[in-house]
Simulated assay, not measured.
Amino acid sequence: MSEWLIYRGTGAPHDAIADLPAPPPWRAFDGGPVVPSPGPVDDVTERRLGLAGDRAGNRARNHRPGARERELVNAALYLRRPLLVTGDPGSGKSTLAHSVAYELGLGRVLRWPIVSRTQLRDGLYQYDAIGRLQDLQFERAASEPPPYAGEPGGGIGRYVRLGPLGTALLPQERPRVLLIDELDKSDIDLPNDLLNVLEEGEFTIPELERIADRVPEVPVRCDDGSTVVIREGRVRCRAFPFIVLTSNGEREFPVPLLRRCLHLYLEPPDKERLAGMVRAHFGDDAARANDSLIDTFLDRAPGDRRAVDQLLNAIQLTRQADWAQEDDTRRRLTAELLRPLDRTR
């Protein structure tokens, strides 16, 4: 394997991220003071954090990217550029982010799921103005000062929480992994709204900027549950995060966004990758036991679209129902579950 690869796609954790060369001068960032980087996330920690640890961990460990996939991931790491990953549902777009985080020991993936109502601020931070107003009203009616009356800014930090993108942009020595999932589901303005943040690697929190002359440091909560101190209402990264933007190809993106990203198209998984996905979910024996079902999944007419979820559903139902291999019910339901997505009849 080439020595320049930081991410190797082997599924084995290592510390090669420490060998990542300095960024290009136009992608160097100087945020600070440095905040602690998260340590590797093991299965126990993932379960405690409610991260569906076994599933995410197994998928990350069993993901085996092809040469082009490995090369573009490493190009994004070297150049400090986001990676726009497109492909059919179930092709491994989201799993790629988990694989990079797991192998390079970069902590849990910060995930920002996109819907049609998502705005840039949702990813950067949330400020609970209504909650603060209600608490102020209760305070005025109470005879004793609230327990956080002595906190900076009267406890304003209690009402500010950094979002996934905001947390990823904290000044850390090692990059965080951020998954911006299904960007093609967004409002038409969000891709353009992202441009400045992705280029500058920083943002401000106006609610904290306004009090910066009186309260320059305010502790706030992050998307991963940790607490950091925000200085003068400004967040600027130090190590640009490894950002994976996924798209199912349902829309085109503006050229300015494409210019700031590297683009990776994931081909539909072949038999070897499908067997790896089955092993990740059901164990080593499941891939051998369902070899014919994998072949059935791959046997499709030109233009037919199927998602890996359909194959996993068919295997799960087969295992739970304990049908015989030649059972008519098994064959009939398997055909229904593996029906091409663009065919309604």
Rank of each mutant, 00 (worst) to 15 (best):
P113A: 14
R64S: 03
D128S: 11
T86A: 12
L104Y: 10
D42Q: 02
A101F: 12
L110M: 04
R80H: 14
R59A: 12
A60M: 00
G155R: 00
V73D: 07
N62R: 12
G66C: 02
N58F: 06
Q119S: 07
D135A: 15
P40H: 08
L110D: 05
G66A: 04
D122W: 08
I156W: 15
V115N: 13
N74L: 11
S116E: 15
V41E: 12
P89D: 00
R121C: 02
N58W: 04
L110H: 09
R117H: 12
R108I: 05
A149E: 14
G39C: 03
G90S: 09
L104W: 06
W112H: 15
Y78K: 12
A67D: 14
I156D: 15
A141I: 04
E103K: 05
L49M: 13
S94Y: 00
P113I: 00
D135V: 00
T95F: 00
Y78Q: 12
L84I: 06
T86K: 07
D43F: 01
L77H: 08
G87M: 11
L49R: 11
E139C: 12
S143R: 15
Q137N: 03
E103M: 03
R64H: 07
G131N: 03
L77G: 07
V109N: 03
E151Q: 14
G39F: 00
D88Q: 08
A97Y: 09
G153K: 06
V35L: 11
A67E: 14
V85S: 03
G155E: 03
P152G: 03
Y148C: 06
R140L: 13
H63A: 01
D135T: 08
P147R: 14
G150I: 05
A75Q: 10
L106G: 05
D122M: 07
K93C: 03
E139Y: 04
D122C: 01
G150Y: 04
N74H: 06
H63E: 01
W112V: 10
H98I: 01
D54Q: 11
A67S: 10
G31Q: 05
G150Q: 07
L72F: 04
A76N: 11
E46V: 05
E139P: 06
R108T: 13
A141T: 05
